[in-house]
Design a protein around this nucleic acid. Sequence first.
DNA 1: CGAAGTTTTGAGGACCTTCAAAAGTTGTGG
DNA 2: CCACAACTTTTGAAGGTCCTCAAAACTTCG
Lengths: 270, 270
Amino acid sequence: MPSKNVSDLAKYLAKIERRVQLSPEARAAFLAIPTEAEDHPAYRNIVNEGDRPKRASLVDHGLVSRYKTLKNGLRQIMSFHIPGDFVDLQSAMIVVADHAIRTHCPTRIITVAHEDILMLTANVPELARAFWFDTLVDAAIFREWTLNVGRRNSRQRTAHLLLELSALYDAAGLVVNETFHFPITQNDLADALGMTAVHLNRVLQSMRGDRLIRTHSRFITIEDRTKLTELAGFNAGYLHPEGPRHISALEGHFVRHQSRYAQALTAAKN
Amino acid sequence: MPSKNVSDLAKYLAKIERRVQLSPEARAAFLAIPTEAEDHPAYRNIVNEGDRPKRASLVDHGLVSRYKTLKNGLRQIMSFHIPGDFVDLQSAMIVVADHAIRTHCPTRIITVAHEDILMLTANVPELARAFWFDTLVDAAIFREWTLNVGRRNSRQRTAHLLLELSALYDAAGLVVNETFHFPITQNDLADALGMTAVHLNRVLQSMRGDRLIRTHSRFITIEDRTKLTELAGFNAGYLHPEGPRHISALEGHFVRHQSRYAQALTAAKN
DNA sequence: CGAAGTTTTGAGGACCTTCAAAAGTTGTGG
DNA sequence: CCACAACTTTTGAAGGTCCTCAAAACTTCG
């Protein structure tokens, strides 16, 4: 069921603007992108490894993950995406998908054409910066996950992921009383943590026993944030809440060095 | 010992141009960036976690890695960078370093000011695309490493990393007779693989015994690429040798939809 | 209310770690 | 150019974290 509602993009715009203020013009250009909305049931693949998608996906509501599968069937989830996330913005540049994307619950996906993203990046430097930064934070999270599965034990690792999710849900305004809705099975959570569901289950029981967290149906409550943070060694710096480098300093630099670049830039613009 | 040699940037330019042909103007603009060269001894930190560097680093020759450290001293290497790599291009946008960077052998680093990178991305869309793509491939490699440490056993994992390195050295023209110079200790290699040096040692011995690889001083030879590839489940797709999406298709799109964007884009450009 | 999916429990075992020390290699200064 | 120190690789033995397999208990939903 396609729609053309401009406000489809509002959640992602809000996410960008938590980090940088956009000019009214950049905002208008972004909101001019035509969108389509699709509702997917749980456990539906949006993109498969090897696909060459033509459109990029945002999460409006629901939950999706990106994952890879080994030949023996083992699966590793590499990221979760909550409402307001641009799941595969990168697919505008990366032609062949190197991972799959699927839903974990009934999810509304907004898609935009790669051409529109690329046109805006070529014509609106502010948006190019915002998009680039977004994918760089993605990369920072992948790095932290590599550390997580590589060097933290199962307890620390689980604690770390829960705190990361808590921070991301909180930034999206979806945490109330240290509680957020994370509709995922222990099986899938184990696939994100690089461990078995059986072992994750025992870790969760132990963490509940120690009053670090509570879980009820698919809600997670951080019961003792201090101890959990200590256990995980969690530091939110890698999520880069400070936003991208301010461009203001740049203008002085440009004026000072204009002569050096003038020739090259003039040529390049044509 | 600063230098201003334009050809400092030639290796990275070559790496870009393996994927996309740049216009002469974009090439000239890139080569106009002022550089500085610094020679570092082995095991020297170039950037520390929490730093706010002002310049980004390229490898001219040598080897560097990016890594994070846990409070208990455990370390996870997240990437290696060989000659021609732009180690932390991302630092142009990401203000606070979320990881450290250090050398593994005597290494020549070329640095460029963040301002220069940002100015070029704002004024030369071709370069903005090339830079963005570069960091997206970085991210794709981080994802594969998460899969590697999360879901592959020690043997598959080791094989996979060696094949990745082989592919990257090969693309840089640094492989002769399936042999490349990778100057790293087993201790550090273990930190990249999320395992202990003792266990890595036994894995390497077993792989040598099976005639999959050979190692001599700090050279690695892929002795049986077929079997090693089978063992690792290695597929180079995630390195995205196909390069970024071609922009040619974009021009038709722009013409077709110009009316929709004309207003927003005209406004945004001022 | 029954079927399907999810969480929990138990027991045994494998993979990888830990600790410690020996053997081998590299680099430096006398 | 040898001697020696420092580092790296290798070996051994014991043990722990996490996995495997299987079944029971619980939950969700049509």
